[in-house]
Design a protein around this nucleic acid. Structure first.
Lengths: 212, 212, 212, 212
DNA sequence: AATGAATGAGGGTTCATTCAT
DNA sequence: TATGAATGAACCCTCATTCAT
């Protein structure tokens, strides 16, 4: 799994929790929290049930760790890269694409998992809402507001534009992991992001009257 | 429990199944399928465990009934109303608004439920994908294709436009029922739909160059 | 079921308990006590669950009634017919044949049922042991003892002879209802009884030395 | 429960399945399959319910294991010992006696158990009919046929003779475990077997005419 | 007298958690 | 540190029994 890693025996001790968390995330994403058995997680991580409890005091704690440790690392990188661009349009492009690429690399969808389990883990849902969703949203809204202020975009509701750009990508990824790939014929999210940026920036109407 | 509770052991053969299905839907949406106990459903319906099994042979059958009886009735009405309009733009407007209104009337989000449980109920997921999602999608794509053919819209990918319009509304509704109302400050989906139609039809870019 | 019976409606009231008992016996013999559902008995009797409880206060009482009312009627007739014969040999013949014929007429095997359920109904088992099994046994032993006293039979243990004659017939009937007919290629018990009488009366050894 | 009870949570992987099977057989024989609770079996084996499911996937599997592991080992031994004898008469004697002795050693009666539960477990009944009953029957029939061919026995139906010898022993054992020991005053089956062999070989009639 | 909707205790089974090794 | 046998609470489901009609 790791390429040039030290021989199995030695590296085990410090690698264990990470391996278990990774296995747990995969299982949880595939089957949901309640339907996942600790034994399956243990098996996927190459250990036994008892070992899981050596590092995590309960199934719930394991779930929290799996979410927390997989969710935050990428957000800073996305933000930095976006802010390095010089136009609002380019920042939007960079942010959306990096964010979509991050999703594409995952085996499952953490958002899907959170949607399914938020009701049973309110504190965790709050954490996710604020620290993950809120952070991405604030970043994009900031970019759009700056774009409006600088005359790149016409006056509009930045929150709605953010949704118009993010929701299709996020939902496409969720559906892919919910209903299977065949449904999502546009398999990579990057293309979808491009099309959305085009539509949202330029609209689809040919006449100049504002709709409605 | 003490004072004016309704008499126990009422005989209500006709009303029972509907009451139980309604209670089941509410409980399932709130807690997910696996985490819901039949006893909770029964209690919410004002009966006892055994009564649920009088009308539904298993928890899974109850789940299917709950989905089936809540999902299909509205779709035909939406389609008819949309097709009565004379322009593609008006058809889009009507379809999206009726669809969003249908969601708003529900106590929970069936899509959320399906996303959460599809993995454990493949046949049901397939049914939902084809009969619900696919049907809405095909209707909207048809409207957009006609609009392009008649010169109302510029050439674009109808599937992506459909996503740009639907995904934010659907996801907003899902998030509302996942993370609570406070997050969704734009409480009614109608307004969101209007803003999206504006953005998607007219774009947000001020200069005429195509983005990117 | 009854040929020249009065129209259904009128005869119901007094016929009910008998119909229920008959149905119960059939169901109990087929499936055993615990595996039989009151609803099945009711259905077989053409009534509903509640009606069964109108006549029998519990499933157990129904079981007792089913056994008691089906078991005793034939025994007196058998005894009378046997005693009308003039030789011990003829009495044996008549008794065994009438007893076997009684079994053959039944749909199931009451002995089988008793064997299966005796552990759960000790008083009933005791009743059956004494009033049914014991009575048949005592009658046959009496016949054999008289036969020995009058020089018809050589000195032997009458109880063992009784067993040698009865057990194969009884067990054959039990097996037929346990493992199905194909196993019992000698389908009617009368033939088996004849063969047994021949063997027990005359033996199978050709030389005159007493075995062993 | 208070003083010198064995330590809880002993680890006894090798011994457990055998202990559980033994306990299950005892409970099943006593109460029948349906009326036996897994918890009772577990208690009798000194473990808890969950442990039973560690080794047997269902109540039915436990039942099958209980039958299989108690029934077959003896049959080969009986057959070998019988065939080592030189006369048909001696082979019959040895086979019947060893077979009866095998029953006597058991705590309960497996035949009784099978008779009681066959209706609810058809595959198991078929297995028992063929592998246990059929095997014993075929062995004895073979011995008798050879005895007739060699002039040791007069021409007769070997199947009926087999029944005349086996059924009383088998039924005596069943009755002992059904109605209790007091009924079976001839407590050991060996004596019964001897008497039966005497009766069947030599008959009980004093005059030389064939009966009937 | 008869019904059948409703009840709820009870049993099979699962699986998170513990703990002796 | 790691194991995996053992535990037992909790859940789905059944069905004998009750009772309003």
């Amino acid at each position: 799994m790791t390429d040039s890693s030290p021989p199995r025996r030695q590296r085990r001790k410090e690698a264990r929790p990470g391996e278990i968390v990774a296995a747990a995330l995969a299982i949880f994403q595939t089957k949901g929290f309640a339907a996942s058995k600790i034994e399956d997680v243990a098996h996927a991580a190459g250990v036994t049930k008892g070992t899981v409890y050596l590092y995590f005091s309960s199934k719930e704690e394991l779930f929290k760790a799996a979410i927390r440790e997989t969710v935050l690392p990428n957000l800073d990188r996305i933000s930095d890269a976006a802010m390095a661009e010089s136009t609002a349009r380019a920042r939007l492009h960079t942010a959306i694409h990096l964010w979509a690429a991050g999703m594409d690399n995952c085996r499952g969808s953490i958002s899907k998992l959170m949607i399914a389990e938020a009701g049973n883990f309110p504190e965790l849902a709050e954490f996710y809402r604020e620290e993950v969703i809120g952070r991405v949203r604030r970043m994009l809204i900031g970019i759009i507001e700056a774009g409006i202020a600088q005359g790149e975009f016409r006056p509009c509701d930045p929150a709605t534009v953010t949704r118009a750009l993010c929701a299709p990508v996020l939902l496409s990824n969720i559906f892919r992991h919910t209903f299977g790939n065949p449904y999502e014929n546009q398999s990579d999210l990057a293309k979808l992001a491009d099309s959305l940026l085009d539509i949202v920036l330029n609209g689809i109407a040919l006449n100049l009257e504002v709709s409605r």
